[in-house]
Amino acid sequence: MKKLILGTAALALSVGMALAQDVVRLGTEGAYPPYNFINDAGEVDGLERELGDELCKRAELTCTWVTNDWDSIIPNLVSGNYDSIIAGMSITPEREEVVAFTQPYTPPSMSSYAALSDDVDLEGGVISAQTGTIQANHVVDTGATLLEYPTSDECIAAVRNGEADAVLADKDVLVPVVNEGDMVFVGEDTPLGNGIGMAFRKSDPEMKDKFDAAIQSMKDDGTMNALIIKWMGEDSPRW
């Protein structure tokens, strides 16, 4: 009898877990085009939307999208408000102390400076960058004055307003801004970070492995490269 009860309990528990695993909540920022942004229909869109949906399909999981402020995106992951971060987050040793990253889905990409004119002083001037990004760290390392904003859009607006001399961000984010607007790239492109990956709770290795395998399969059959070309253009580094 006791065994029966235990067996039922174990069964109930495993069914409960299977149910709970049914929906994977993907957290993103929704303000970093072309990686992720809120489109005009009010839905999450961009490279990571398409990538995330495809990964979930390959891993046979049901996924929903959640947006969260960049500042609190890691604390909300570790406290369990969503199950994964897929928000253009570069893999860095500091972040790896808190969360577990999959293998990168985009190769280490270039960060670039954009400004209104060619003749800005990148080392002695005021450079804007998004708070808590590898670019913000890099600006501090170069000795320039760092001006932080919560979103990349505000960093770019700061240059247009004259508050900052230049903005440092992922090149893929700045390319459409430069192509369609009044800004130009200045200085050398700098490779920062070790590529962009999905982040999971460290206590969630099984789900991380599932997505890792799905990313690998997308790299192997070329669909990952096709996605990069579609959203970032031909010039962005590929696998």
Partner: peptide, 24 residues
């Protein structure tokens, strides 16, 4: 508590991860 992670059993999650977005 596992490192910085906060892990409870799936049945204790608030709201349950299966519940629709409006519940969250």
């Amino acid at each position: 508590r596992q490192g910085s992670d906060f892990v409870v059993c799936p049945a204790a999650k608030l709201p349950l991860s299966t519940s629709p977005q409006w519940a969250h």
